[in-house]
Design a protein around this nucleic acid. Structure first.
Length: 587
RNA sequence: GCGCCCGUAGCUCAAUUGGAUAGAGCGUUGGCCUCCGAAGCCAAAGGUUAUGGGUUCGACCCCCGUCGGGCGCACCA
């Protein structure tokens, strides 16, 4: 199903003739008194042609054929075209919408393959609050892209290789508490890592021993390989638990170690191609001078002028680093999936890193690079109420399992307070859905760039722009249908939809915007647009609910209102589902 | 020092990327339950969009400067 802006744009295009590459013709009206949709095409074109915008708008209007869909088109302000849709046409469209499994989300003109690289926790460390944004954003983007009709590969690029394993192996052999390991493997692995890490600073012989363990691991020593695999196995168990609770899944989990054998070849090729060269004992990539200095990720300016800001692909000790691994990963992904886009969901501090990786890739494999859009989807930090990075009271990082436990506990006490008569098992299930949903929604609702403040009170509030508020709107609709059945009626779907009342019309129009919003999310990877739309939808529904009785409505309008309710519940459930958030039937 | 990001109502956040009178929630004030879940709705008050310039029909958005805050700047990922 095409979106309404798309449809109007097509009509405009026909009327305008040569649009000179101007896009973004039509957006929802900024205010209902201007109509339903607006176009600034006349103003944009008039500017380009140095003409009069209102006169051009008049010209376009005379050639515009939209009588079948619009009740009126008016020129207003500096040259806006304001479209007011025909009510009967909107009613018909809603009837189409309810028959559409995609709820109005258009098919992509070209289905693409996307690789989404997200979450990426480290082996042998507990997952913590720092992983939630990547995990939720990556999951939401993946779900939305798949829903739209793209092929999505979800890749968890776990940190399962690197220098930390020297210390972990040393600790495992010398400090391990078996009982503690069985009770909580992640806690114990973290403990030994921290202890060895601390001792390395003061005791050179420990540092040396840890290094020796690392060398043995890298050389393929059987014992160390076995222990390493055990650490991964234990960590994967934790990942599975957490992802299970969150409803997040991956298609592949290819950690850093997977790319090990390819690293040497990457560096060799870069050197042979003259892209990397030796400097201070390390292999470095410098600027090729083909970009403006301001746009060159390998240059940095200081008081003397521009100086080199190289990316290392081999450290002076001969080891590769994450730039090398990312390059090998990039090549592998292109070979295996030939994606049209690869999306990296990480925090904003890695912007320079990815600019360098992408630039090296373009120089290294230009024919592959030409086929793919590389997107660094970055996000800001989660802060505590004090404005500093979110920590526990004692200053520790917040473990994800503890965070989710607390979310569910808090939700449980709220549910119990509100509905003590529900059986405990059901209250727990509702609390799970609300608690996890609240954490996710609080993370996805703000603009991803920029920090946000973590607040239990705010995210679990039933008021305002929160998951419980949206879930509650859904629950109220479900309650109507339960009441209907309890009253002995049977709902027969498919009745004509009427938008006679203002509140009905507002709800109907809002429902019809779902498709364009979902489509819009993928342009710049901003799930918060969907979150905010759903909030507006819930709000519009509540207003409708207050203004228009459903079950008690007269027989003439009741079936149509039930249709609107059903559609609203489907859009809410589907939309929240695209954000990875479940809905309960009651709460 | 240089770069990236942020600065919007008392607080927490929006604003469909240059569109019309900058919107919500919390908090404050005032209304609405003999009526489908008041976990809701309606309304009021609250703004020189940090600040000074510029670009144009039009700027929270783009450009230049200034002031605050965060992060990053070759061997950790």
């Amino acid at each position: 199903m095409e979106t309404i802006p798309f449809l109007l744009e097509a009509r405009l295009r026909a009327a305008v003739g040569d649009a000179e590459g101007v896009d973004l013709f039509v957006t929802p009206a900024s205010d209902t008194r201007f109509g339903d949709y607006q176009s600034n095409v006349a103003m944009v074109l008039a500017k380009r042609r140095r003409g009069n915008p209102r006169a051009l708008a008049q010209e376009i209007l005379e050639r515009l054929a939209v009588e079948d869909v619009c009740a009126s088109v008016e020129i207003a302000g500096a040259g806006f075209l304001n479209f007011r849709m025909r009510r009967e046409w909107l009613e018909g469209r809603l009837e189409q919408l309810r028959a559409d499994a995609q709820l109005g989300v258009p098919e992509p003109s070209v289905p693409r393959t996307l690789v989404v690289d997200f979450s990426s926790p480290n082996v042998a460390k507990p997952m913590h609050v720092g992983h939630i944004r990547s995990t939720f954003l990556g999951d939401a983007i993946s779900r939305i892209a798949a829903f739209v009709g793209h092929q999505v590969v979800r890749d968890n690029h776990i940190g399962d290789w690197g220098t930390q394993f020297g210390m972990l192996l040393f600790g495992w052999k010398n400090l391990l508490d078996r009982g503690a390991l069985e009770a909580d493997p992640l806690q114990e692995m973290e403990r030994i890592y921290k202890e060895v890490s601390a001792r390395c600073k003061g005791e050179p012989e420990v540092l040396e021993a840890a290094r020796a363990e690392l060398v043995k691991l890298q050389a393929g020593d059987e014992e160390n390989r076995g222990l390493w695999r055990e650490m991964i196995r234990l960590s994967q168990g934790q990942f599975d638990d957490v992802y299970g609770r969150l409803g997040v899944r991956f298609d592949v989990t290819l950690g850093e170690s997977f790319y090990n054998e390819r690293l040497k070849l990457v560096v060799e090729q870069l050197r042979e191609l003259g892209i990397a060269s030796e400097s201070d004992g390390a292999m470095c990539v410098f600027s090729d001078g083909k970009r403006l200095p301001e746009q060159d990720p390998f240059l940095i300016r200081d008081k003397e002028g521009w100086r080199a800001n190289p990316a290392l692909v081999l450290k002076s000790d001969g080891a590769a680093n994450y730039t090398t691994t990312d390059l090998a990963t990039l090549q592998y992904r292109m070979e295996r999936w030939t994606p049209a886009e690869i999306i990296y969901v990480t925090d904003g501090r890695q912007q320079l890193h990815f600019r360098q990786v992408f630039a090296i890739f373009e120089r290294w494999l230009p024919e592959l690079a030409a086929k793919v859009r590389l997107s660094h989807v970055w996000f800001g930090a989660i802060l505590g109420e004090d404005g500093k990075p979110f920590k526990t009271r004692s200053g520790e990082t917040v473990r994800l399992t503890a965070l989710l436990d607390e979310a569910e506990e808090r939700a449980l006490s709220l549910v119990t307070e509100k509905n003590p008569e529900l059986p405990e098992a059901e209250r727990r299930e509702i609390a799970r859905i609300i608690g996890i949903g609240a954490v996710k929604y609080a993370d996805l609702q703000p603009n991803r760039q920029g920090d946000y403040v973590f607040s239990w009170e705010k995210m679990l509030s039933f008021q305002g722009n929160t998951a419980p508020y949206l879930q509650n709107a859904y629950v109220r609709i479900r309650s109507i249908f339960r009441k209907l059945v309890e009253g002995g009626s049977v709902w027969e779907p498919g009745a004509p939809i009427g938008l006679g009342e203002a509140a009905e019309e507002a709800l109907g129009k809002k429902l019809l915007q779902f498709g364009e919003v979902v489509e819009h999310v993928l342009v710049d990877h901003r799930p918060n647009l969907l979150a905010n739309y759903l909030y507006e939808l819930a709000n519009t529904f509540h207003a409708f609910y207050e203004a228009c009785p459903v079950l008690k409505a007269e027989a003439r309008v009741r079936p149509g209102r039930l249709e609107l309710c059903d559609l609203a519940s489907r859009v809410l459930r589907t939309g929240l589902g695209l954000l990875g958030i479940e809905v309960p039937e009651r709460m």
